[in-house]
Structure formats: structure tokens, C-alpha cells
Nucleic acid binder design. Structure first.
Lengths: 358, 358
DNA sequence: CTGTTAGCGCGTTCAC
DNA sequence: GTGAACGCGCTAACAG
């Protein structure tokens, strides 16, 4: 039989598919062999046809193969191909926190655009932890993933190593702390400047900012852009009007406690993201400050729920759908491309002004 | 965790191996062979040790193997094992829409609890599309995933087939439309009843409901539970007070347009989920109705943002973290277990009452 | 243009 | 207790 045997395999004999030795977890799946038999060709031909190797395959043969594969509902076992090619159609998305609507929206966008190109996404929550990020970076290699989308990268030894190994990595929203790599995202510096311009155009010269973690290029650049534009207009915020609030609801709330005093408060506040703005808003409610009447607030990311639950929040709108496409294209460029892929155009952003409520 | 070793080139006679034929995509990875050589044993021994096959392996040998693997930063190529075992450590999560905070939170929970058990999650957006669901069901088999968590299952031919094939599937939040299977979620019927009881206890007898799609067991059961409790109290809603609103913001808004008329409106409304409640709320704002003063609103799911942006919304709180653990345990039970795993305890829910604002 | 063949890296019977 | 050899399903050389 087949299971163990030094029996010089006579191909014809086992062609009849004697019982397989290994117990199958669930229902026998049809392999390339079955298709070959049904089409009356060799497995090599099946492989070629199905992989679109155009050696001017006989049309009639090709049709027979496709038909057989179709009738059998054949699906190549990825494990075989992965072993042979050291490559899968898997793309890993490393993400800080899937519960964050901003990240979730990007994840969804990436997933669907990957799917359109016949790839499958593995989702890994890094929690912004360098050790976890490194773990996944290695683990994903062990899975022979074809590429990695790194959302919210943090600095880590493994990241530097991966970069040096020239792994196909697309850095999403946040540039690699150690430099290099392919970046997909908006021009955060310009976005920061745009917010400043908007505030100034409204006549708000007493501005404040609750910035995110400055090790994040996204947070840092929008912060710097905002400050530089304000400075150029001679409206640089006073020291106490610059506070750090992380990227969380709680951080925004805590920052607001520092920023908003009973007697005096800034006229306009730029928040690191929408969550921070929500936190700030809660404090405003507690103090009886109306937004945007008493205080103008600008968030970042434009949470899809804003129109419904935060009609008071102006924010920087991010083209979520564009992220997926851009990430996929960046990876494709790395796969196809020679050596160093040139940086792609940054994604567009826009200011979404709201103020209908309160 | 295994220490990283960027140690390239172990000088040991690599010359033994004739030049490899296939070009490696990126940096040669150390295989089981390398570990075996370094430990001075055969690959079989390495495999046994690392897989914990207790054939009373010589402790000293075992230690040598572990050390070698560690020093080399060895990571088994999953492809090899997948091919041999027809099994990976991948678990697929099929999810209707990752952008939905409710689903996203559950996804995060599942990912981390899977990770704790050394498994990796593949995320697939089904978009509630039966065809897409079937596609993924098959595709995931082609990847030899070890299990599938099916969130928001819809009826489809492939699902029935998968169930018949006894694939390891855990149905999350929504029971399989065709029956059978292992379910992880709360007791939606009881939750619906609890909402009704709450309304009644507040003295609201003029109630309405905006229910979700009734083909979903979750939506249907909470709807039925709500109605039955109301009926028993002799407070069954009038026909016009029962409307369908899907599970979306827009659906909630549209339903609210039907439900809320200038002259007259119900005193309390039970919404299919929080999104629907947000949609309803927008309409309330437009009509100048205060929540909960003029109208009591009960959502479902308890979106994590509620405390911050919807302090007016009472809702049914779901134990997100518990989902991941329960799903993982359900799968483990299927993997380990014999035949039919008995149904697990439903997850707990609770009413979260809010009404601080407006 | 198609068939034959040799592994990809691993887990696993069999001899020893 | 350990090693040698086979094959999982597939792709890519190489014959024919």
C-alpha cells in the first residue's frame, strides 16, 4: 500500500487511489491528481493550466482541465504550493488595536482590496508592543506570508532586521521609526498646517493642541505642521497650551482637565485624533462649554460615527478606502518591482467641518 | 519566546548539502535540519523533542536540542507541517463587517485569546453575503485552517455542506440558520425580555421596537423575547410600533421617521443595536425630542464609545472579552472532544442604564 | 506542447 | 532511545 513502503511505486497501481494512510480531519479533498485523472492529463499540465503558464497550451486540453477542475470543485492545497514556493498568498496586517475604529476601518479596506487580488489577510494585534510586533514579524515569516502591512509601527530590533532582510513591508499611517521602507498614508505635516490655517482663518489666534505620542511619525508630523503654521502667523501657542494626550479617550479627557480652567481657556483646540476629541468634549460638557460656540475643536481621522453621534466635531477626514488600495498597490510594486520602489503619492485628506449641534 | 538570532552562517559543514535549486525570496531560514546538525542528532529527534513526544527522550539530548533550536532562533516552517498534517494553527474568523465596532471588538477578543493558545487568526469579511461566506468556507479549508469562527452566519449551501463535513466551526452571536453547530453568545431571548421588564418597571407601557433582520437568530430572539414579555404584561405594542430597521445607522433613522410623528410617539423604543439607536437619536434631535426625558431608548451591544459620545443611551451590555475566550474554548472542545460537544453556557449580559445628558 | 521526476520541510512509521 | 527513509500536494526543471 502507500502509507509506508519502499515498494517502488508503480504509478499505475496507486492511480486507483487506494486508501490514504493518514486520517483526514474532515472529508477527503480532491487534489491536483484527481483533476489530472479526470482530465486525462498529467498533474504537471493541470498545474500549468491553472497557473496560467502560457506555453501556448492546447486550447482543447486547457478547456478539459478547467472543466475537470470545475466539476470537481478543485482548490489547490495552499500548503503544497507554500512548501514548494516558500510563498503563500497570505498578507499579514499588524495592527495596534482592532477595536479602534480608525484602525478597524483601514483593516477592512485592506482586507477587501487584498481579496480583490486573490490574497488573504492575517490579522495580528500588536498592541503597540515592540516584543509582540517582533514576535509576529517572525511568526509571519514562518508562515511564508507574501507581504506585511505594518500599521502603527513601533521601534523594535526585529523591525530593523526585517527591513535589512528586505521583507516586503508596507508601513501604513506611521513611518518606520528606523527610516527606510515604503509608506502609505497622508501627508500629516500638511494636514497639521491645514488645521492651523483653518483656525486662523476663523480668527482664532488663541490655539491649543493635544498631541499624540511623538515617537509616532503621524502624531509628530501633524503636531509639527500645526505648530509651524501657527508660528509663522505669529500665533504660536503658549507652553501650557501644548499638552500630550496620547491617542485615547481617557488621554483626551485628562489633557482637557489641564487645558480648560474655569476662568480661562483657549479658543480652539487641535486634537491628536477623534477619540481625544471625545474625551475633551466630555470635559467641555462638564464645564458647560459649548462646542463649537465657546470652543472650536478639531479632531483627526473622522470616525464614521461622527455624523451621527458627534455632529459638533470638525475633523480631518481620511480616505479609508484609499488605504486598502494603496497598501495593496505598494505591495504589488514591491513584489513586481526591481530594487527600490519609489515613494508613492501621499493619500489625500480633507477638512470636515461640523457644528450643527449644540 | 525564542530569542532572535540573526546569526547567519553557521560555519558547520553546510558544504554537505548540494547547492539548493530554488532561489530563496529572502534570507535563508534555518530549518529543522540545521537544528539537528547543531545538536548532533537527527531531524527525527528534533521533531520529537520540539513536539513534546514523550518517548522518555534522554533529558540530556532533549536539552541539547532545545538549546540548539534556541540559539538558531529556529521556527518550524508551517508549510511543511501543514502539508504533512493537513492541519495548521490557523483559525479563520468570518465576520460580516470589521468596521462595525461590535464585530471589531469581538474580533480583537478572539484574536488575543487565540494567540494565547498559540494560534493565528485569519480575518475574512463576508459582508453578510452568502456567496462570499461560501467562498471563504472553501478557501479556508484549502488553507487547512484548524477551525473557523463564524460571526454573523448567513444561510448558504456551503454552510450546510461544511456542517455536514463536521468542520470545526464555532457560531458566534448568531446561530446557524440551518441548525446544529456550536454556539457562542448570550441568551438573546432573555435579553429581549430583560429590556421589556425594564421598560415596564419604569411604567412605560407604550413601547415600540425597531428590530433587525429576522433571519438572524440574534435579532429574532431578542425581538421575540421583548414582545413576549410585553404581551404577558398586556402591553403588546401596536402594529405600527413594530418596524424593521436593519442593523445600521441609516436603518435606524429611516425607522424613526416612521415611528415618530409630530403629534404622537411611543414612550420607549427598543433598538436592534446601538447603531440603530444612533439613527433614531438623530431623528429625535431633529424633532426636538429629548432622550430619555421624552423618549426612552434602549440599544444593544453597548458600543465602547457610548460613555463618551452617547451618554443618553441605555443599552444591553455584551461581555466582549468573554467572547474570545468562549470561542477559543469551544474550538478546543471540538478539537479535543469526542463527537458532539455539548452546548456551553450562554454568555452573560447586563443592562447598562444611562441618561446623564440632555 | 505534454509527461516524468525531483524535491520544498516536516512528522512519522520502521529498523536498529 | 535514536536514525533512516518516505510522502503529504504542489511547481519547475528536463525529456520526449
Amino acid at each position: 500500500m502507500i502509507g509506508q513502503a519502499h515498494t517502488r511505486g508503480t504509478p499505475e497501481a496507486d492511480a486507483q487511489s487506494t486508501a490514504r494512510a493518514i486520517a483526514r480531519p474532515a472529508g477527503r479533498s480532491i487534489g491536483i491528481q484527481a483533476v489530472a485523472e479526470r482530465a486525462g492529463v498529467s498533474i504537471a499540465t493541470v498545474s500549468r493550466v491553472l497557473n496560467g503558464i502560457k506555453s501556448k497550451a492546447n486550447e482543447e486540453t486547457e478547456a478539459r482541465v478547467r472543466l475537470a477542475a470545475d466539476e470537481l470543485g478543485y482548490r489547490p492545497a495552499h500548503a503544497g504550493r507554500a512548501l514548494r514556493l516558500r510563498q503563500t498568498k497570505l498578507v499579514a496586517l499588524l495592527i495596534p488595536d482592532i477595536s479602534n475604529a480608525f484602525y478597524a476601518a483601514i483593516a477592512g479596506s485592506i482586507e477587501s482590496s487584498l481579496r480583490a487580488r486573490d490574497h488573504t489577510m492575517i490579522l495580528c494585534n500588536t498592541n503597540e508592543d515592540p516584543r509582540l510586533q517582533d514576535f509576529y514579524l517572525e511568526e509571519m515569516q514562518a508562515y511564508h506570508v507574501r507581504g506585511i502591512a505594518l500599521l502603527g509601527a513601533v521601534d523594535s530590533p526585529g523591525l530593523a532586521a526585517a527591513l535589512a532582510d528586505k521583507l516586503p513591508i508596507a508601513f501604513v499611517n506611521r513611518k518606520p521609526p528606523c527610516g527606510g521602507g515604503v509608506f502609505v498614508g497622508i501627508d500629516n505635516h500638511a494636514a497639521g498646517r491645514a488645521v492651523a490655517s483653518h483656525f486662523l482663518s476663523r480668527g482664532y489666534r488663541d490655539c491649543a493642541v493635544i498631541h499624540g505620542p511623538l515617537h509616532s511619525s503621524a502624531s509628530r508630523e501633524r503636531f509639527e505642521g500645526f505648530l509651524s503654521a501657527l508660528r509663522e502667523a505669529g500665533a504660536a501657542p503658549a507652553g501650557p497650551n501644548i499638552v500630550s494626550g496620547g491617542l485615547s479617550l481617557e488621554g483626551g479627557y485628562a489633557a482637557a482637565r489641564l487645558l480648560l480652567k474655569a476662568e480661562r481657556h483657549p479658543r480652539a483646540i487641535f486634537c491628536a485624533n477623534d477619540l481625544v476629541a471625545y474625551g475633551l468634549f466630555r470635559r467641555c460638557r462638564e464645564l458647560g462649554l459649548a462646542v463649537p460656540r465657546d470652543i472650536a475643536v478639531m479632531g483627526f481621522d473622522d470616525n464614521p460615527l461622527n455624523d451621527w453621534v458627534a455632529p459638533w466635531l470638525s475633523t480631518v477626514h481620511i480616505p479609508y478606502d484609499a488605504f486598502g488600495i494603496a497598501v495593496t498597490e505598494a505591495l504589488v510594486r514591491i513584489w513586481d518591482g526591481a530594487g527600490e520602489p519609489e515613494a508613492a503619492e501621499p493619500l489625500p485628506f480633507s477638512l470636515r467641518l461640523r457644528g450643527s449641534a449644540e
